[in-house]
């Protein structure tokens, strides 16, 4: 019995070792991106179209923007699709990436409990709203160097508040959707991107509302850039550039614009130049 079992296991091993040889035909590239982009369903919508046209499969690893850029810097991605323009331009300048392009945008909004204990509803300035939250509310931060987190820290800096370590400041260390849920449970405020908010507020039954929006400071630009092939030999630069070029082409831009969530909201607005 024992010997038979061992023999079966051996057969399985042989079968599996032989199998991967077949899988080399299609070209695959790895795209490091962000949880907010991936969770919105955008990739599930646009990638099959791109794959059909070019035969290139794009494998998406979704992280926070900071981690996604780091991944590219280590050469572990072929292309990065993220949203923290300053960090992106810095990484290009340092020689880790090439050919960065604006692709699309959406915007950040400040959400909080419907009864709005800090009384920020309808305020025009996001930073002024942050001041009020610091004084009379609780705030849940992504705390993960993501694009959203970067924007949030920028806003705290503007008003000269150091939130870290404060009793009212909670660092979730989670993706956007989970952070929203933490904020909901804690009856706190948070900064989120409109895409994630629209896609999840009903499903997660959040007792929250958009309280501040429309401040130019809350603009959320997405960019794409290829990992510098001069730096990493194994990088699939040609295919990565095909993806970049498609995203900023008329066809790619139209595809992004036509992506809608379940309720028919457009989540991303193409703005490639």
């Amino acid at each position: 019995m024992f010997r038979k079992a061992v023999f079966c296991l051996f057969l399985v091993l042989c079968a599996v070792v032989v199998r991967p040889v077949q899988g080399f035909a299609a070209t695959e590239i790895i795209c490091s991106s962000t949880t907010s982009t991936d969770n919105s369903g955008l990739f599930g919508y646009i990638l099959p179209l791109f794959e059909k046209k070019t035969g290139i499969k794009v494998k998406v690893v979704a992280l926070g923007t900071g981690a996604a850029i780091e991944m590219g810097k280590r050469g572990d991605a072929d292309v990065a699709f993220v949203h923290a323009k300053e960090q992106e331009l810095k990484a290009v300048k340092e020689g880790f990436f090439v050919n960065r392009h604006d692709v699309m945008y959406n915007d950040f909004v400040i959400i909080g409990p419907v009864d709005d204990p800090a009384r920020i509803r309808g305020m025009k300035s996001a930073s002024e709203a942050f001041k009020k939250i610091a004084a009379a509310g609780k705030f849940v931060s992504r705390g993960d160097k993501s694009g959203t987190n970067t924007k949030e820290l920028q806003l705290w800096k503007m008003v000269g508040i150091e939130p870290k370590g404060q009793a009212w400041y909670i660092e979730a260390g989670q993706g956007m959707e989970k952070t929203q849920r933490v904020a909901d449970e804690k009856r706190a405020y948070t900064l989120t991107d409109r895409g994630t908010w629209l896609a999840t507020k009903d499903k997660d039954r959040l007792a929250m509302a958009i309280l501040v929006e429309g401040d130019p400071m809350l603009f959320n630009q997405y960019g794409v850039m290829a990992v510098n092939p001069a730096r990493f030999k194994g990088v699939k630069y040609k295919e990565a550039m095909e993806f970049v070029d498609w995203l900023i082409s008329k066809e790619g831009q139209q595809t992004i614009a036509s992506f809608k969530d379940k309720n028919g909201n457009q989540l991303f607005f193409p703005d490639a130049k």
Partner: peptide, 14 residues
């Protein structure tokens, strides 16, 4: 396994 690591040439990450 990272491309900038010692075994990066194997392209095994992910």
């Amino acid at each position: 396994l990272s491309r900038s690591g010692p075994l990066g040439f194997l392209s095994l990450l992910y």
